[in-house]
């Protein structure tokens, strides 16, 4: 998921900022990703986006926007995409991946 430090942009809603993200699926075993927003302690923070769970085929890129309340931006936030894994038929450990970008008032 890019960028690592997304730039906050004004949105069409007062008091709400938006960030533009891009997700590229490099995992052949995963097709669905969930978008999450956390504070630095990994507690959930409210946000809005078109699809919280989106289908991204292998080697496909998907662009999406996330809307965040400006009042939540006092401290940096983690914007993450989490892979949704499918239950296998054999005894095995699954690999769940989470990639987090850091959203700050002043991008790095």
């Amino acid at each position: 998921m890019t960028p690592a430090y997304p730039k906050l942009k004004p949105s069409h809603v007062y008091g709400v900022a938006k960030v533009e993200m891009s997700l590229f699926n490099q995992r052949q075993d995963v097709k669905y990703y969930q978008v999450e927003l956390f504070d630095l302690g990994f507690n959930s923070v409210p946000f809005s986006t078109t699809y919280r769970i989106m289908k991204v085929d292998y080697k496909e890129r998907k662009d999406f926007e996330v809307y965040i309340r400006r009042s939540d931006l006092g401290n940096p936030l983690y914007l993450c995409t989490i892979s949704k894994v499918v239950k296998p038929r054999s005894s095995s450990p699954l690999i769940s991946s989470r990639i987090c970008s850091k959203v700050m008032e002043k991008a790095k």
């Binding site: 983690y78 894994v85 450990p93 699954l94 690999i95 769940s96 991946s97 989470r98 987090c100 850091k102």
Partner: peptide, 14 residues
């Protein structure tokens, strides 16, 4: 039966 467990791999921006 079948046993499944999850390894969580995270990449966190500093």
């Amino acid at each position: 039966g079948t046993y499944t467990a999850v390894v969580q791999a995270e990449c966190i921006a500093k």
